[in-house]
Amino acid sequence: MSAEPAIYLDGVRFSYARKGPVVLDMDRFEVAAGEKVFLKGASGSGKSTLLGLIAGIMAPTAGRIDVLGRPMSKLSGGRRDSLRAERLGVIFQMFNLLPYLPAGANVMLPARFSPRRNEACKVAGGAEAEARRLMSRLQLDPKQYWSSPPTELSVGQQQRVAAARALIGRPGLVLADEPTSALDADARDAFLSLLIEECAASGAALLFVSHDGSLASKFDRAVDLSELNAARVGT
């Protein structure tokens, strides 16, 4: 594990249009390698923007973003895409899965997109073995669910497939955007424990964004986006 922070933000500003309103203005934000951070943010607080910037899908208008020691904000679009493909895992609020691929194939997708992640699966005996291992770690019996189409899975199961997919090939950082908001209380707690456990097991840092502050206790650290983001955005 590298000593470089998983996320390092310095003076980041972002607006969608060149002269449009600034939706994100963050002076300093850091997530250490392997650290599990809870980021509290209501909808409209700029959290999707922040995640988009960290994931390198968008580039900041000003400032610097380093991800896993690489200057994400300085890289070209193509290099940002490959850094994301190789080193990041992303879990969305819901509808995470490609509807036309069965669960197992969804989990294996990142290994097919990135040779580096495919390589990282070799230790476990290849991408399929690793995908099966992660599924059973997340309490989805691969024997039963490997070929299930996403439509036949419950929302909780879909989120666990998404978590397995985010974790395959040992990414250095997992970004989770309200992954529990569609789950009931029991499923939410179970999911959260599994996610944190697996991130720890694979050494990935976790940035978990949610509006639900009650989840914060399970994390190493909790921060409030509204305190970090100097830009005032209406919802």
Partner: peptide, 14 residues
């Protein structure tokens, strides 16, 4: 659009 966003998040380039 969702399908495209998922693919992008997984590392697919435009």
């Amino acid at each position: 659009r969702r399908e495209m966003a998922i693919l992008r998040a997984l590392g697919a380039r435009p």
